[in-house]
Design a protein around this nucleic acid. Structure first.
Length: 470
RNA sequence: GUCCCCAUCGUCUAGCUGGCCUAGGACACAGCCCUUUCAAGGCUGCGACACGGGUUCGAAUCCCGUUGGGGACGCCA
């Protein structure tokens, strides 16, 4: 039987880091085994599910390149099917109507907690025949009273639950809509899912789901519960730990392959290998090798990986993403200025994110408004002579290439008896408006003769005006 | 509280079928070198088997307990 995995998020927020890793593991497992990867949107909670969330999840998946072979299936479109299954369970005496009110249930829980017991439904409506006037009943699944359920988990190993620990969970709300534990079971069954790879937080649900599956006469799929991702304070990763949405990382200038590489190494390793291409992941990843313990999200390492990918990926590919970030700054390289590929080549060592690169490269495409306050100190009267001589030499230079440009700067420094930095820094600030840019010859080259000369003139004028004022 | 799960450097991890481990790699951090800015790069350093019992000639590796952490316990998923 061929492998079928699925990713089943509920659209109540954005696609977050943890979900993305679960999706990745499912995707990798399917790809590795030549199986299918299914996307299913679990939107049975109509109160909290939103269309925007669905879009954000789809967009995040697309950006990461996690393509699915089937779906997205929406649970909200399958209510008829769930109703049918619930009806069948009711008919067969494997489920029953429960007329307890929320208040009663709450009181029961409080009492059990007070007695230091695990709060669970006591089954008081199990054998009830008569409806209770004024109460719309829920439907509960009749969980076996005795025996145990064994979950033979691909990452956890053998985990045993006693049925006495479980209670009769609600499978249909009083408005008739199905609940999570019922819908997953039905869908995984209907969709032929062979491997359920999901977060650790579902491990406790698994025996209940297996029981429902058995009541339906089906055999459970293989399960793999992957450990959670924690924030830096050791609690479950959430918004307060900073960026958790996949699209937020895109916006901050991360490459999808960097995020994927970071995610795959969270809870999994292949010896000392740190860098994995997508193909290598597919080849080497095995769900059986995933760790059992939770791991802490480490933004610094992700940043390092991002920088690694910016430096070592095909510049053409990086440039593609850089264009997007330039676009966000209102810059269209097609309208003039250097080729983004050359910008990538010139900038990649010093930019850990593409957003940084776009910001640090904007000066190639448009004039900056002000000199950076930390850099402006280089534009002082002592630099005037150097800038003037540079201007003349640059103006007379025909061959606007890095080599001759480099010579111009070196010769100017020698002529004035200055260290190279004393000449290059003022020039850099004149050209870029700030103290950081690619090597000065490359910067001149990429900016072009016309713009370079104009900016040197601007800097000279700036210094002279400042001198007059003082 | 009850049940389930987990436990190697600050973080991600290698190790897992016991000896090759005076515990390896990566990130971060510190120092040095290189240097026309910022970087990148090179070298060096810092730094862990939670604790206590066993088993064994020998344990990070196996067993038990303690402690610590996480998760579940909803008419959320």
């Amino acid at each position: 039987m061929s492998v079928r995995t699925r990713f089943a998020p509920s659209p109540t927020g954005y696609l977050h880091i943890g979900g993305a890793r679960t999706a990745l593991f499912n995707w990798l497992y399917a790809r590795k085994h030549g199986g299918s990867f299914i996307l299913r949107i679990e939107d049975t909670d109509r109160e909290r599910s939103t269309r925007e969330s669905v879009n954000a999840i789809l967009e995040g998946m697309a950006w990461l390149g996690l393509d699915y072979d089937e779906g997205p299936h929406f649970q909200s479109e399958r209510f008829e099917r769930y109703r049918e299954v619930i009806h069948r369970l009711l008919e067969e005496g494997k489920a029953y109507y429960c007329y307890c009110t929320r208040e009663e249930l709450e009181a029961m829980r409080a009492e059990q907690m007070a007695r230091k017991q695990k709060p669970r439904y006591d089954g008081r409506c199990r054998d009830r025949r008569e409806p209770r006037p004024g109460v719309e009943p829920v439907v509960r699944f009749k969980n076996p009273l005795e025996g145990e359920v064994v979950v033979d988990d691909l990452v956890r190993g053998r985990v045993v639950f006693r049925n006495e620990e479980l209670d009769d969970l609600i499978i249909a709300r009083s408005d008739g809509t199905p609940t999570y534990n019922l819908t997953v079971v039905v869908d995984d069954l209907d969709m032929g899912v062979t491997h359920v790879i999901r977060g650790d937080d579902h491990l406790n649900n698994t025996p209940r789901q297996i029981n429902i599956l058995r009541a339906l006469g089906a055999e459970p799929p293989r399960y793999a519960h992957v450990p959670m991702i924690l924030g830096e304070d050791g609690s479950r990763l959430s918004k307060r730990h900073g960026a958790v949405s996949v699209l937020e990382y895109r916006d901050q200038g991360y490459l999808p392959e960097a995020l994927l590489n970071y995610l795959v190494r969270l809870g999994w390793a292949y010896g000392d290998k740190e860098i994995f291409s997508i193909d290598e992941m597919i080849e080497l990843f095995d769900i059986r090798d995933v760790n059992k313990s939770a791991s802490t999200f480490n933004p610094a390492k992700l940043l390092w990986l991002n920088h690694h990918y910016i430096m070592h990926s095909d510049p053409l590919h990086v440039a593609h993403h850089l264009r997007w970030h330039l676009g966000r700054l209102g810059i269209d390289p097609a309208e003039g200025g250097p080729d983004p590929v050359d910008v990538v080549l010139a900038q990649r060592e010093r930019c850990k994110t593409l957003r940084e690169m776009a910001q640090g490269s904007a000066f190639f495409y448009r004039d900056f408004e002000h000199y950076d306050e930390k850099a402006v100190k280089h534009l002082k009267p002592q630099a005037l002579e150097a800038l003037k001589r540079l201007y003349q030499r640059l103006r007379d230079l025909e061959d606007w290439e890095p080599e001759p440009l480099h010579r111009v700067v070196v010769e100017t420094a020698e002529e004035l008896g200055l260290k190279l930095g004393k000449v290059a820094q003022p020039l850099r600030v004149a050209l870029a408006g700030c103290a950081v840019s690619p090597p000065i010859d490359v910067t001149l080259h990429l900016l072009g003769k016309e713009k370079s000369l104009a900016r040197v003139r601007r800097a000279i004028a700036y210094i002279e005006k400042k001198a007059d004022q003082d």
